[in-house]
Structures are given as C-alpha cells and as structure tokens.
Write a protein that binds this DNA or RNA. Structure first.
Lengths: 194, 194
DNA sequence: CATTTACACTAGCGCTTGCTTGGTTGACCC
DNA sequence: GGGTCAACCAAGCAAGCGCTAGTGTAAATG
C-alpha cells in the first residue's frame, strides 16, 4: 500500500507537520500540537492519516520524491561531460536540501522512527536517488576527473553535502551554487584555483 | 556546575545509557528501560543522575572529551608537516567515531534534546575540538596541500567523516585508517594515484 | 562505638500520550 | 430531496511517562 500524498489538503498538512517535526523532533511532537498547527482538533487528524507514523512517512516521501524530480531534471538539462554533470548534481542536491529543508532534515534525523514497511518503501526511493549519484561519480572517475574508490567517494560527497543542513545559513552571503562549486573544486584534480 | 563523570559506577551506567540511546533514541528510552539495562530499579537511577537530561549530557560529555584527548595525542605524536597532521587528524577522528561510536551517534542525533546549560557547556567542548581541525586545515591551505575556503573545507571534511557513522561497517573489509587516507587523497592535489 | 555515605528498594503521584468513539456539518450529485 | 462523503469535533480511555518520598542496609569513617 502506497502512502499517497495526493489530496491538496493532505499535502498542506504534511508541510506543516514537517515544520513541527524539525522544530521539536518527531517524538516530542504530539498529535495535539500537530492538530493545533493545522487549525483542527486532534481527533480530526486521524481522518487524514491512519496514525502518527503515517504522517512521518508522508513527510519523508514528499521530500525524497522532490529530490528525485529535481535531480533528474538537472541532469537532463545539461550536456554529457562528466564535469558539468557533477556540478549539476551537486547543485541539485543543495537546491532540494534548502527548498525542502524541513522534509530532508526529518528524513535524516527521524528515519529510525519509521515502521518497517514505510522504511522499505522509502528506502527504495532513496536508493533510486543515490544511484543517480553513483552514475555521475562513475562518469567522473572514468574520465579521470576524480580519483579513488567509487563507493567511498560517493559516500564522502553525500556526507559533505548532507552535513550542510547543520551549519548552512540561507540568509548568509553564500549561495547554494557557490557551495556546490566549491565542493566540486575540492574533490577534482587539475582545475585552476577557482 | 560541571557534569562530572568521575565515579566508575556512573561511567559504566553512562556507557549503557549511550547504547540504549542509540538503539531507541533519547525520547523513546524510558527511565525504566535504562534502569533495567543497568540492573537496578527506576527510582535508583536518580541517585546517580539528577534527571534524565543529565544522563544525556553525561553521555555526550564522555564522547567529546575522548575525542579531544585522542586528537591531541595524535597531533602531538606526529611531525609538523601539514600532510601528516591532516592524515593524523582524519585517522583520529574516525578512531573516536568508532571506539566511542554510541556516544558520538548520540551527540550527533540528540544534541537538540540538551537543555540550554548543558548545551552551552558541551558546545565549548565541541568548539575546542573543532578548532583543532581548523588549525590543521589552515596549515594544509597555507602549504598549498589543499585549496579553497577555510570555513567550507573544514565543514565539508567533517561532514564527510561524521557521515561515516551512517554507513560504515566495522566488520567489513575496510579499516578506519584506509577511510581516512582515502578521504585525504580525495581532497589533496598533486599526490600520485595511491 | 556512633555516624555518615553510597546505593538500592517500594509505591505511587500527577500528568501526557496516541488513538478511539460516536456524532455533526455542509457541500455536492443524480 | 434523499443519499453520499469528506471534514471536523467533544469527550475520554488505557497505557505509559518522569520523577518523588520515604525506607533499608552494608560499608566506610570519626
């Protein structure tokens, strides 16, 4: 059974839930808090979601699907050079991380709270996204743009990028694109100094 | 007021708590679960710790202090070349991340659950550790070993390293030292291909 | 010897939790 | 104009929560 974020009402509720989950954490966010934020009573919540877990799953599903869409679009919009694909992927990654920040923070921090079924379903989604990355990394390795172990490089890169949610300030001076480019510069050989 | 992990009994309890916090998360770990794991009744717990929050603070303090000790020792044991210091720091980081894995996972995931006082105290500890990193990064930048923005590079590197707790398998084929070296290779210019 | 200290126990208070129940409302449809 | 249906509500249940109060006891300390 899929989670289905179809209804617009439900989509809005999911967005609000994501915000609260980030602020308070999943466990400390009560159904009463969620309901109040949504302008309804706690009982009404269970008309839209089977239980609290399903709200969490909806939040994470929304974020991961957006990430997939954005990454695919970014890749389809750029040429076949390993370098531009790497740049595009890094930029796309940071773009979702910031526009759907709440959902992604929840995915990173509250993944363990998912029940086994939801974890399996969303795990496949995440794998689909990560395989996009490995494809791009493979290209970059093949053309000598970067060196090292395929597995390790992709994990290091994703770690560096995902970690940004812990320190990046959207109101600061740096744009997401600058971050992405700086990361690519750091891991690629040969390029001139910026 | 310091948290003081002095008593050996308390140290052992802290270790057990760290394990449970990783397994279940802080909020879902009840004082009754903690007590059972420790072989005492839930009421007895509050002889050792003022409240549940203090257990969390003790866990994180223990891990962070160990990280500081290990990093300082590693740095004092190696020569003054930027390259060897970078290697040493990366290895030390992964060493703590694995030997005190539970404590560090708790620190990464449950930081927000700390009350303001504990957060301030432990924040200073963490800052002391991170400044070790920035020192090493500065050296590497000054000697041209790596390029880029000081702030960004250190955050990217720490992100890549900290992220390892999410995927690294201690029973696998790769040693922590291999991981550290591979990361250094990835971000440094000039070196030969392994 | 008397006293203190460290550690553990039992029993439960006061409160919050996720979720259920049984019902109402109003918009839409043939 | 009877039927359908999503949306919502008031009320509350059973379970579980962190934590406290008061007591017992064996070892260390004077």
């Amino acid at each position: 059974m899929n989670v289905m974020n179809a209804s617009p009402r439900r989509k809005e509720l999911t967005r609000l839930a994501a915000q609260l989950f980030v602020q308070e954490g999943f466990d400390r966010t009560t159904v009463r808090m969620l309901a109040q934020e949504m302008g309804i009573k706690s009982g009404s919540l269970f008309h839209h979601f089977r239980d609290k877990q399903e709200i969490l799953a909806a939040v994470i599903e929304e974020g991961t699907e957006n990430a997939l869409v954005i990454a695919r679009e970014a890749l389809s919009r750029c040429d076949s050079h390993a370098s531009s694909r790497l740049h595009a992927m890094a930029r796309a990654h940071l773009e979702t991380l910031l526009t759907d920040r709440n959902a992604h923070v929840v995915a990173l921090y509250e993944w363990r709270r998912l029940d086994p079924e939801a974890r399996a379903h969303l795990g496949h989604l995440r794998d689909a996204y990560e395989s996009l990355w490995e494809e791009v990394i493979d290209d970059a390795l093949a053309t000598g743009l970067i060196h090292g172990d395929r597995f390790l490089v992709s994990r290091f890169v994703m770690g560096a990028l995902n970690w940004t949610v812990r320190w990046y300030d959207p109101d600061g001076t740096r744009t997401p694109d600058e971050l992405a480019d700086e990361l690519v510069v750091m891991i690629t050989r040969s390029t001139s100094t910026r």
